[in-house]
Design a protein around this nucleic acid. Structure first.
Lengths: 134, 134
DNA sequence: CTAAATGCAAAGCATTTGCAAATAT
DNA sequence: ATATTTGCAAATGCTTTGCATTTAG
């Protein structure tokens, strides 16, 4: 199965708990520690919070997943993929991924600042289409 | 004095502790709770951490200052000013402010997503000129 | 004079650690 | 067979709360 080899590729031992973390994250996209814990408890009633923390941190350190910081929210975790930005609805807190062309932006910033830029963390905040109609 | 009237304008009572918070933040730019506490203790040895938390939160809630989330760092606080982005050096952790033209970016994002966007939290990560030469 | 801010101690959460037993490779 | 992971309990760390006292307006 695909998730198994992805874990192996990152030098992570394949445990049932880890497989379920991957499954849940691929379903929900972005989650904080606590909702991940709640979701995992359904399948593993004895799962410990400590196990989640340990797994999330090793998986993050091996770049298997990434930590996302959004204003007014707890840290979120998502499966690693190509660099992308996030859009948050300030009413319902829903988050979507979006791929944007950041190159002109980065160029502008590096020529002003003289930094050698290589990554970005971009969150745009607004109202989602659903909330806009309510 | 300018800081006094700025606090008053935000309906914040002017206490010595708050004046010092403003002074320190305008000197250092961005600080986390703990380094703010350390810095304030020099002038107010009896200052309590609780006082800092309470002040930072009321000042944030009255939009006198803003909370900044940077990957791999604790929450930072800075005096409110025009919207701007941040650049972080991944070696020395130094942070600078930068004003960038985000409009084309925001337009691109809103037409793709159908969100009504009105704010952004943009952090660019790279190597600062100093660290680049070492 | 009144409402808000301060400092302290205690309470409340969140995160990490140590360790024995279980599991993956 | 070995190294890693798991789950538990305890420890640590971070943030908030309640309350008596002080201070700003």
């Amino acid at each position: 199965m695909k998730n198994i080899s992805r874990l192996k590729d990152s030098n992570l031992k394949v445990t049932p708990q880890r497989l379920e973390i991957v499954k849940i994250l691929s379903t929900y996209g972005h989650m904080n520690i606590n909702s991940l814990y709640e979701a995992l408890r359904e399948k593993f009633p004895t799962l410990s919070l400590a196990t989640i923390y340990k797994n999330i941190h090793t998986m993050r350190d091996k770049s298997f997943l990434s930590e996302v910081k959004i204003p007014n929210q707890k840290n979120l975790y998502e499966l690693k993929k190509e660099e992308h930005s996030h859009i948050v609805c300030s009413k319902c807190d829903d988050i979507i991924d979006i791929e944007l062309d950041t190159s002109s932006f980065i160029n502008q910033a590096s020529s002003i600042s003289n930094y050698k830029l290589d990554k970005s963390s971009i969150v745009l905040i607004g109202i989602c289409p659903k909330c806009a109609t309510i």
